[in-house]
Simulated scan of single mutants.
Amino acid sequence: MIIFVLALLVQAALVRAAIEDLNGKRPVIGDCIQIALRSFLPTLGIGILIIVTLVVAVFVMVFIAWVIPPIGWLIGLALAFIPAFMWLISVSVSVPIAVQERLGVFGSISRSRALTKGSRWSIFWLLLIIGVAAMLIQAVFTLFFGLAVATTGGITGVGVLVGALGSTLVSTIFSTMLSVTIAVTYVELRQVKEGTSVDELAQIFS
């Protein structure tokens, strides 16, 4: 939960950084952090709703699978998990909206659903590509680490530390990429659907 909240705060900070960068300015770290902290409560609220949605979807899917074996998994997937996943795609830019437009939790979610309408499949494929790339690189790292352990005849304290740091580094890189992608997606949606320039977006923070 703590890691998830921190990830949302990082995403909030990257919204500011992405807009400043797209506007040809150099992002100021302190400014980005200040804006992320200012948006902490709505960001946390959005994060909690996302977690609750996923938990409920998994619970319903497992319950249906238990009640109607052996095809219950497919029914649960169709009735619970897939709709929940598509809802998550529709609210994928809620955090940038909460940071940029300050609409609160439910206002940001509603705004995200309106803004992503007609573009959700594009967002889905974009996020899928990033997710698959992350899993592949993580798998390659795990494979090489496993080979290194097998070659040395066992795992040492240093090996554990290197493995943990490497795995954390890979996760951090792709979390950052995901956050930047969502922030840029928000900017692109505003530009395409509403003709809002990057300069106009940046002025809100001034």
Rank of each mutant, 00 (worst) to 15 (best):
2 I>E: 10
3 I>N: 13
5 V>K: 12
9 L>V: 04
12 A>M: 00
12 A>Q: 01
16 R>F: 05
18 A>Q: 07
19 I>L: 06
20 E>I: 02
26 R>V: 12
27 P>L: 01
27 P>I: 04
28 V>F: 11
28 V>Q: 13
30 G>S: 05
31 D>G: 05
35 I>V: 14
40 F>V: 11
41 L>P: 01
41 L>G: 02
43 T>E: 03
49 L>H: 10
50 I>A: 12
52 V>T: 09
54 L>R: 13
58 V>N: 10
61 M>H: 13
62 V>K: 15
64 I>K: 06
68 I>P: 08
70 P>S: 11
71 I>F: 15
71 I>W: 14
73 W>G: 15
73 W>D: 12
75 I>N: 03
75 I>A: 10
76 G>I: 03
76 G>M: 06
76 G>E: 02
81 F>Q: 07
82 I>S: 09
82 I>Q: 07
83 P>Y: 10
84 A>T: 05
86 M>G: 00
88 L>Y: 08
90 S>Q: 08
91 V>F: 03
91 V>H: 01
92 S>A: 12
94 S>P: 00
95 V>Y: 00
96 P>K: 00
97 I>G: 00
98 A>D: 07
99 V>K: 01
100 Q>V: 03
100 Q>A: 07
105 V>E: 14
106 F>R: 13
106 F>H: 11
111 R>F: 06
111 R>N: 12
115 L>E: 01
115 L>S: 05
115 L>K: 09
116 T>K: 02
117 K>M: 09
117 K>F: 07
117 K>G: 04
119 S>G: 03
120 R>P: 08
124 F>C: 08
125 W>H: 09
126 L>S: 15
127 L>G: 00
128 L>Q: 01
131 G>T: 12
132 V>R: 05
134 A>N: 13
134 A>V: 04
134 A>F: 14
141 F>M: 11
142 T>W: 15
144 F>V: 14
145 F>Y: 15
148 A>N: 05
149 V>E: 07
151 T>I: 10
153 G>R: 09
154 G>W: 12
158 V>A: 15
159 G>H: 00
162 V>T: 04
165 L>S: 02
166 G>P: 06
166 G>Q: 08
166 G>K: 08
167 S>T: 11
168 T>H: 04
170 V>Q: 03
171 S>M: 10
171 S>L: 10
171 S>C: 01
173 I>L: 13
173 I>W: 01
181 T>M: 14
186 Y>R: 01
189 L>M: 05
189 L>P: 05
192 V>W: 08
192 V>C: 03
194 E>D: 13
199 D>P: 01
199 D>M: 09
200 E>F: 05
201 L>R: 01
